[in-house]
């Protein structure tokens, strides 16, 4: 095999590929902000959201980001994520809106009581639909990328949702050139993915190039974890039901992707700087979703979730 993947050394600013991807993302941001009446940006606090936010700031400089930022809080996010979210929002003067599904809270829905799938549906999918409806948003930006998962390879940059946020493969519009059909009929909304053409490696290289701050959980550090069926789960608070004989032990771990702590597996690592992290990524070439427990059900499961309205 030829070693053609960009090496760590080749990560130097400005990288022409990153510049081109950045320009394309900014184009998409501006197009949507100009075309839709009430756009909103979905912010999940992870690295992709951090990059997305950085791009949004660039797209509209010197004015402020002209739309609100929405976080769906499942109540099971890592504590460090929430602290990071609030600090970034304050620093950038963002119009941050946080929504939690009140019905889910009232019913006491957790990953343990209702199972991963049902929990995700209620606390993420339904919660997102509630927030989008309540805000009467006609467009929502997200940080999804085509390389995340096989079924995403055909996702549109402008992804149409039918009434009820349903994603219908047959209704997706052909995307010619840079011209997007942003016209909506009654009840339709749009999901907009400015980073469609980025890869995970691009995200990290861009984080480095632009010195974008990300949640420290991405970098290795001793953290309290248990080994649950081969997955390293960090015990972020005392709500996690430990099994008999299970005691958290300190291990040097980091996360490739961030979400709800009981559903996000850590990897053992010593990468505590950006360069180490990039170096590790080039060696361990697994797709990042392998750390997300909810997607472990195979290639098509993401697609069925999307049909239900999951992002």
């Amino acid at each position: 095999m030829s070693a053609s993947t960009p090496s760590v050394e080749s990560v130097q600013a400005p990288d022409p590929v990153l510049d081109a991807l950045e320009a394309e993302a900014i184009h998409v941001f501006r197009e949507a902000a100009g075309a839709f009446r009430r756009p909103v940006m979905l912010y999940s606090i992870g690295k992709d959201s951090s990059v997305l936010l950085h791009l949004a700031v660039k797209a509209f400089a010197p004015s402020k980001v002209p739309f609100p930022v929405l976080h769906i809080d499942t109540t099971w996010k890592f504590r460090e994520m929430i602290a990071f979210r609030d600090r970034v929002a304050a620093e950038l003067g963002l119009d941050l809106r946080v929504h939690t599904n009140p019905d889910g809270v009232a019913e006491g829905v957790t990953p343990f009581t209702h199972g991963t799938h049902e929990y995700t549906r209620i606390m993420k999918t339904v919660a997102l639909r509630q927030a989008l409806d309540a805000g009467a948003y006609d467009a929502a930006f997200g940080g999804a990328r085509r390389d995340e998962e096989r079924s995403r390879a055909k996702e549109r940059v402008f992804s149409l949702r039918e009434p009820g946020h349903r994603w219908e493969p047959r209704k997706q519009r052909p995307e010619f050139w840079r011209t997007a059909n942003t016209q909506l009929s009654e009840g339709q909304t749009m999901r907009v993915f400015p980073m469609s053409n980025w890869t995970e490696l691009d995200v990290w290289r861009y984080v480095k190039q632009e010195q974008i701050e990300v949640v420290p959980l991405y970098f290795a550090k001793p953290r309290p974890v248990v080994d649950r069926d081969g997955q390293l789960i960090m015990i972020d608070d005392d709500r996690y039901p430990l099994r008999d004989g299970e005691t958290p032990e300190m291990r040097n771990v980091r996360f490739r992707t961030l979400g709800c702590y009981p559903l996000t597996a850590a990897v053992e690592s010593t990468a505590d700087t950006m360069d180490d992290l990039l170096a590790e990524m080039l060696v361990d070439r697994r797709s990042e979703r392998s750390g997300r427990l909810i997607d472990g059900e195979g290639g098509g499961s993401m697609e069925s979730k999307k049909t239900e309205g999951y992002f």
Partner: peptide, 26 residues
């Protein structure tokens, strides 16, 4: 280069998929 479930069933590609290739030139 496999994608949508529907495609699995029909055994043919029914939509445009986009994929990245890192060329040796960078």
């Amino acid at each position: 280069t496999d994608g949508l479930e529907a495609e699995h069933e029909q055994g043919i590609t029914i939509d445009v998929a986009y994929r990245h290739l890192y060329l040796p030139s960078g």
